[in-house]
Nucleic acid binder design. Structure first.
Lengths: 188, 188
DNA sequence: GTCTATATGTAGATAGAC
DNA sequence: GTCTATCTACATATAGAC
């Protein structure tokens, strides 16, 4: 054949990774197949050599996103004692709010995932539970896992729907301080 | 004329209110003008008697959403002492998670608002700040206003991206307990 | 004010040349 | 494997009849 043995796989991976950024920036539904392909230097017609449908790309893209995010946020045995606190600070930053294309998938594609197929949502659930378990275990706090995740996702959404940078920083700051305080509270 | 004096205004209001539900359920970008009009028994052509563009409907719709939500959540002088706690419980409910069409706009259209015009985002910011102020004042807690809002929005997103009802309830329950605990914590 | 018909663009997806 | 060309559907928006 005219292409190397690994060419197809490489193209597919490039397509997924580039599409991840574009979808987080402009929305998945709001971006056409042609635009995804053009971003890696190809034309729309070649898309269907790699995926049976646009929906299949969405499923793949979301899986990659959550695999990447949860691994990064969960941390391993070598992580420092303040691992979660560090991740919270970087997640709840103005830089994150201003760059959806390289950030967490949930504040950008959350509603689109919510409308996706049960198969997609089941995989998302599996990844999120792993992250929740990691955080709850690390903090020895059953509720904190889900609660901290929710606080992160919600604060990012709020930070992005407001117009002024000042308010954006207020939201993120309030969120960070609130979480620090909560972790010191008695757990009835 | 063949129509009553108030007919146009009534049609416009019906269009906005019906569109609010549809957009929260299926997404605004994912719904065509024809679908919005068909839902109130009209055809697509009549849309432009009421709005100059689809984007103008979005702006109007979001404004109505936030006006309605913030008024409901903020509460007035007559509200009971546990007003915020009550609102948190109903917001963080499985019923809310399962019915986006009648629920809060932020967990459904948040990312679309984030990509909207500065004018739209400025109005959203104004409404949200009012709600934040109301909650912070009521709880005598500067950070709690934004933090509680973020917790609500994020928990709803998480609750909707998972597949099982069991996990959905875990997320919402953990969020509720976490907030109750946090309000009893010392504020540095 | 609403209708049908239509202009125009773009969407997802397929066919066949290379 | 990727290209161009194309099918079909549906998008936003407009024009003119009623």
């Amino acid at each position: 054949m005219r292409y190397s043995a690994t060419h197809k796989q490489e193209t597919r991976e490039k397509l997924i990774n580039t599409s991840r950024e574009i979808a987080k920036k402009d929305g998945f539904g709001g971006t056409g197949v042609d635009a995804f392909m053009k971003a890696i230097g190809l034309t729309g017609g070649a898309f269907y050599t790699h995926f049976e449908s646009k929906a299949e790309l969405f499923a793949e893209l979301v899986e990659h996103e959550l695999e990447f995010s949860t691994e990064m946020l969960a941390g391993d045995e070598d992580a420092p004692a303040d691992h979660v606190a560090r991740k919270l600070r970087s997640y709840l930053s103005s830089a994150h709010a201003l760059h959806p294309e390289t950030g967490c998938v949930l504040p950008t594609l959350g509603p689109e995932i919510a409308r996706a197929s049960p198969e997609v949502k089941a995989r998302v659930e599996k990844s999120l539970k792993r992250l929740r378990d990691a955080w709850s275990e690390r903090l020895d706090d059953d509720d904190a896992g889900w609660a901290l995740l929710a606080q992160c996702v919600g604060a990012l959404i709020l930070a992005r729907v407001v117009e002024s940078e000042r308010t954006r920083r207020e939201i993120l700051g309030a969120s960070r301080r609130f979480l620090e305080r909560a972790e010191k509270a008695p757990r009835k």
